[in-house]
Nucleic acid binder design. Structure first.
Length: 108
RNA sequence: CGAGUAAAUUGGAUAGUCGCGGGUCUUUAAGGCCUGAGGAAAGUCGGAGCUCCAUAGGGCAGGGUGCUGGGUAACACCCAGUGAGGGCAACCUCAAGGAAAGUGCCACAGAAACAAACCGCCGGCAGCGGAGAGCCAACUCUGCGUUUUUUAACGGGACUUGACUCUCCACUGCCGGUAAGGGUGGAAAGGUGAGGUAAGAGCUCACCAGCGUCCAGGUGACUGGUCGGCUAGGUAAACCCCACCUGGUGCAAGACCAAAUAGAGGAGCAUUGGAGCGGCCCGCUCCGCUCCCGGGUUAGGUCGCUAGAGAUGUCAGGCAACUGGCGUCCCAGAUAGAUGACUAUCUAUAACAGAACUCCGCUUACAGAUUUACUCGCGGU
RNA sequence: GCGCGGUUGGCUCAGAGGAAGAGCACCUCCCUGACGCGGAGGGGGUCAUAGGUUCGAAUCCUAUACCGCGCA
């Protein structure tokens, strides 16, 4: 993995409580400062998104989005990205545009 | 050519750049090479391997299966057949043992739902009524005969009334026969026809259906024939009977390593006890057990974890499912869970869908494309 | 991953082979100056879906869909 991931339920709950939230058409982003040098990411695709194939594909597209844009994003944050149902349809550039826009508004 | 039936295959491809899981190599944090989801990976419906509980034991209960023969590690699966139903046919579908072992249920309707008489039909007895006939008595009439007593007597005839007897008809009541017909119902006591009868009836006969005996064929389900007695309602996906099978637990099973901690507290029970043991009993093994109070863990690691009832080619056996021999090959192993992004070309830029211990089946989902065999119809030669 | 359970009116639930019920909610009328309470009456159901067994299925059997629970 090129980026670190959030795994503990405690950390997720901390981000949900303390983080800033932005809602888009394709995804929802939470972010909060974690006191570390690098970023940690959590990617979530719930059962509402679709079956296992669609959930896997959503997670892959979001991972690809993070890898391609890691240089642009500020360091020192815990970020959670939640996929929404229509992230599967549509070209990848839409994800990049909306993702970067939401990141800016969250404070990265 | 059209319509259809059965089966099989495929499930986007190629190239480039940047990335991801696993293995391996080189050298020291990077690079090279190889490899990386499915026919259903799904549902978790059936079975098995493997794990621990006893080396998984006995009996009862419970559960499962249910035409026959075979295949298989096993199955509720598969193959071949039998029977029943559907289709012109190719072919398809079927939980398809037993209702003459016992019990239950069959609402409403109907007389009656395991056994019948409501209407009807027939016979007998009794009563009442009507019609006809016979006979007797009485009354009336007489145009007939005889006598002479002649407005009569006797005889004959006719009519009316009454009693009795017989026959027939109708009604009522009682007793009995009847299962043909009516009506009810999903289902009503084998069906159709003929004879027969008081009326009817397997009462008798023929054919059909069903039951049983015997014979023949088949391993068998069963089929064909023969003879017999003429009859047995349905429901077992109701209890049940019969035959066969069946211990529980599930990789969060289980094993090892590391780390941490505190039980030296209180109460109760105890060998005729408690635990393993899960419905019960037996049997086996172990010796403390239960509750309260207090403490620890909740992001530990490794193995199990992929070479297997494996794939593929060929030969042999078998109708087939399948089995055996020989050769070749190694084909995911993650642990929040690996396949994505971009570009180009082909056609209309694809369906259902993502391994989590493994395997065999079943079931369910599935755009499009291709192939094989067969059936029916039309046309041509 | 493995093992279980459920689906009946708008809601919560009974009914376990003879065809659909209760409470709350809803509607109408009475009561009240009005609202509430109270009283009387009423409407509303492909019993999750599809097949099968049966004369007859919400009920029995099979499959499917959806919802939920437990196990380190």
């Amino acid at each position: 993995m090129l980026f670190q991931t959030i795994q503990k339920k405690k950390d997720f709950n901390f981000v949900y409580k303390k983080g800033r939230k932005q809602v888009g058409k394709l995804m929802v982003i939470y972010a909060v400062k974690n006191g570390l040098d690098n970023n940690r990411y959590g990617i979530i695709a719930s059962k509402k998104v679709g079956n296992a194939v669609i959930r896997n594909r959503a997670k892959r597209r979001l991972r690809a989005f993070i890898c391609r844009n890691e240089g642009v994003i500020k360091n020192g944050f815990d970020v959670i990205i939640i996929a929404r149902a229509n992230i599967i349809t549509g070209p990848f550039k839409e994800i990049e545009n909306e993702g970067l826009g939401l990141m800016k508004r969250v404070g990265l």
